[in-house]
Amino acid sequence: MTRPVAADVLAMAGEQVLTAAQVLWPGAVVLPGPVVPSVTSYVQQLHVDGSPLYAKVSVCGTSLVSVTRGACGDIETVRARQAAYLASPSSLMAREAEQLRTLSGPARLTVAPLAGYARGALFTGPVAGRTLADLIEAEPGRTRELLALVVRDVTDGLAREGVGDVVERAAIRERGISGTFRRKFNGLSGPVYLRQTGHGETLGVVADRLRRARRLPPGRGSAVIFGDLKPEHALFADGGGPVYLDPGLMRGHTVADTAKLASRLVLGLVARRPAAACVVLAGADSYVQAATQRMPADERSGWLRELVVLALMDTLNILTTYLTAPPDLPLSTQAAGVRDRARRVADLLDHATAPLATTADGATLWRLYLTRVREAVTAS
């Protein structure tokens, strides 16, 4: 089998965007714009009768990296599978459209404006402002404040009446940390996949440690969570509150949203190594300490341990995706930066997972995690 060329996959998705736009806005002038580098879904800027929009398509319900590595067959097989997938009422973008309506409706959160959905393509309006990651980098002394604001805003919104009903029928479990970890690192294909990263020996040990790590009981994970709360998925306009993109609502432990924020914030620091990185880490630590200070000792320890395990799982998930991306698939600046410093990230994962087998105390694991992060950020 010949793996699909990335340009062919992107061209196919671009054609589907144009078809969907013509269905939604018949007779409109649709001008395609640049493709946004992504390892997950196809994202493209465009103008419809002069109005700027973003279009998003999921190819076969899996990541672009998997598709372009040949996981869904050659390009003709991908085309056939994609045609069936786009027609499904449970396709990823159909669920994301429903989730955006839920977030702006019963959850009363501010989200990217939903412009339309048709034939597997989701269209949203642009959001002006700086991402949470950019704002933290520009104002590192506000790290604790900004993290607290976003987590509180999301947690309060998702706890409102009517949100849970939608999640039951339109959950996006594909974006969950634990589920992604299980899919990627199963007993059969996981070792083969890890060898393709160029750091298979180290990352294989990391994956094994995380599989064996002590976790919170599954029954504790019944809250509605955002599921994909990355720093780049919360934008701030000047003087305004957060606006959210790319939800992945599902049920899970509330700590999972904080874990993804922590993991992706850390990866940004490792990739860019800003001068104020240690200030940002101190602010993140301060936020975590404040968020857990009123918990009973056992609950606090379990929450912090779950935070560390999930953050490390998420880091392994996305690092391996970046490292196995074919060279013809465009990467974002941060993805390229993480890949360039993959050895540092692999060492961070190795050193931070080592205590999981011998240390049960969550506060200790969190402190050791931060120590290893500082080492990775400051290493040359």
Rank of each mutant, 00 (worst) to 15 (best):
L316C: 11
V205R: 15
R95L: 14
Y85M: 08
Y117G: 07
Y369R: 09
V243S: 13
G337K: 03
E76G: 12
L216S: 13
L323S: 05
R169M: 08
V67Y: 06
V154M: 08
V59Q: 06
T155H: 09
Y244G: 03
G227V: 05
F181M: 11
L132D: 02
P326D: 06
L265G: 15
V373C: 14
Y287S: 11
Q334S: 09
R339E: 09
Q293E: 12
H233R: 07
A335P: 02
P191H: 04
L146S: 12
N186L: 06
V127F: 10
S222M: 09
F185Q: 01
R305S: 12
L323R: 00
Q196M: 12
Q44I: 07
V127I: 13
G337I: 09
S380W: 12
R273E: 10
Q293R: 14
T131A: 15
S63H: 00
V255E: 02
T378E: 15
F226Y: 15
L281G: 01
L249M: 09
V167Q: 15
T358F: 05
A291V: 03
S178C: 05
V150F: 03
P52K: 11
T155C: 13
I172R: 13
V309R: 06
L261W: 02
V154L: 14
Y117A: 08
L365K: 12
G105Q: 12
Y322M: 08
L323Q: 04
R272P: 01
S91Y: 06
V206W: 15
L86P: 02
E145Q: 14
V35S: 05
G200M: 00
Q99K: 05
T40N: 13
A284R: 01
L92N: 06
K230R: 12
V17L: 14
A259V: 01
L86F: 07
L64D: 03
A277R: 00
Q45V: 02
A55V: 01
A335I: 05
V163K: 14
L235F: 13
V224D: 15
L307G: 08
L312D: 01
C60K: 00
D49C: 11
L281T: 00
I225A: 11
A223T: 04
V243N: 03
S58N: 04
P89F: 10
P140G: 14
A271I: 04
V270Y: 05
A13G: 03
E145C: 08
L158D: 04
C278I: 01
L229C: 10
I136A: 10
A325G: 02
A20Q: 13
Q82S: 11
V309K: 06
A213L: 12
P37D: 04
M1C: 03
D340Q: 11
R264T: 04
A325R: 00
R300F: 05
D328K: 06
A379H: 00
M313Y: 03
A259D: 00
P355F: 09
D285P: 03
R69G: 02
V377M: 11
S380Q: 15
L86M: 12
R220Q: 14
V154G: 08
L249I: 08
Y287G: 07
M1E: 04
G61V: 02
D347W: 10
T202S: 15
P242C: 15
G105S: 09
M295Y: 14
V35I: 10
A237V: 00
A259K: 00
V9S: 10
R344F: 03
R215G: 10
F181L: 09
A284I: 02
D347E: 07
V224E: 14
A363S: 13
Q22C: 07
A277C: 07
